[in-house]
């Protein structure tokens, strides 16, 4: 027993998939259990923090009333639209910035400037520009992700070994062929990882956008519940976001592993 524990805690050691899942589920269950017990013995005021079982019950009722699935799909749709827009713009721009010095010299200051602006500070201007419709939400999400993503893409492209590029050049590849056949292919594993991470940030800005200007979506559900001090409904909404995040992240990780299973362990 202590031998097994010892080997499991080997510094930078490995853990089988089954054991990892078991540990992950076990720790989550443990936290929920402590929380539930704390509620039962009266340590937690339900107005302040309802118990996990109460939240689950509320979530069930809300789903039955049709308040969850539709709104979750609306939120997901907004995220996907804005995220695709960001990615479709950031990938080519980032690749060009990495390949041509004048382009990065021209764009880097602007990107850095906007990147450090807090998104809430830009809500008024985006409402002035786009009103309170879908455009504002997509715009805010795009603002929050595009400028971060473009720099990550530059970084991914920069990390493509120069030797790959030189091999292609000596074989007669022209610049656009190098971009397509070498840079793109070589950076893809890193890029997909960065897309996964950026997708997570989208939720932050989504809730913000839906709190400010929306009459649907999970952010709206949470914010409305807060107004009536329905803490259990707030927590149920938060819980749904967490689950969606967890599932998409794990799915993308698994997809990444599968997609690049032949390319070795690097990245």
């Amino acid at each position: 027993m202590s031998g097994a524990l010892h080997s499991a805690f080997a510094f930078r050691g490995s853990l089988s998939r089954r054991k990892r899942v078991a540990v992950a589920l076990g720790s989550s269950f443990f936290i929920l259990l402590v929380w539930q017990i704390a509620s039962w013995v009266g340590l937690l005021d339900p107005i302040f923090l309802p118990s996990p079982l109460d939240i689950l019950g509320t979530l069930y009722d809300m789903t039955a009333r049709g308040e969850i699935i539709g709104n979750a799909l609306i939120s997901l749709g907004r995220i996907m639209a804005a995220f695709l827009l960001s990615a479709v713009m950031a990938i080519p721009i980032g690749m060009l910035m990495s390949s041509y010095r004048p382009i990065s010299a021209a764009l880097e200051p602007i990107i850095d400037f906007i990147r450090y602006l807090p998104i809430p500070a830009l809500i008024p201007i985006s409402i002035i520009w786009f009103g309170v419709g879908e455009e504002t939400k997509i715009f805010l999400l795009w603002l929050g992700t595009f400028f971060q993503l473009v720099l990550l893409v530059v970084d991914d492209a920069n990390r493509v070994p120069n030797e790959y590029v030189e091999v292609a050049r000596t074989l007669g590849a022209r610049p656009y062929e190098i971009l397509r056949d070498i840079i793109w292919r070589s950076m893809l594993p890193g890029l997909i990882n960065n897309l996964r991470i950026t997708l997570g940030w989208c939720w932050t800005y989504l809730i913000l956008a839906e709190i400010v200007a929306a009459d649907n979506g999970l952010g709206y559900v949470i914010w409305t519940a807060r107004r009536y001090m329905k803490t259990d409904e707030v927590m149920a909404g938060v819980f749904v976001i967490g689950i969606i995040g967890l599932v998409t992240d794990q799915a993308m990780r698994a997809g990444h592993t599968w997609l690049f299973r032949d390319q070795g362990t690097s990245r």
Binding site: P161, E163, V167, S186, L188, Q263, S266
Partner: peptide, 8 residues
């Protein structure tokens, strides 16, 4: 000098 085959 260093072997440079494409991993993909």
């Amino acid at each position: 000098q260093s072997y440079s085959s494409f991993p993909w």
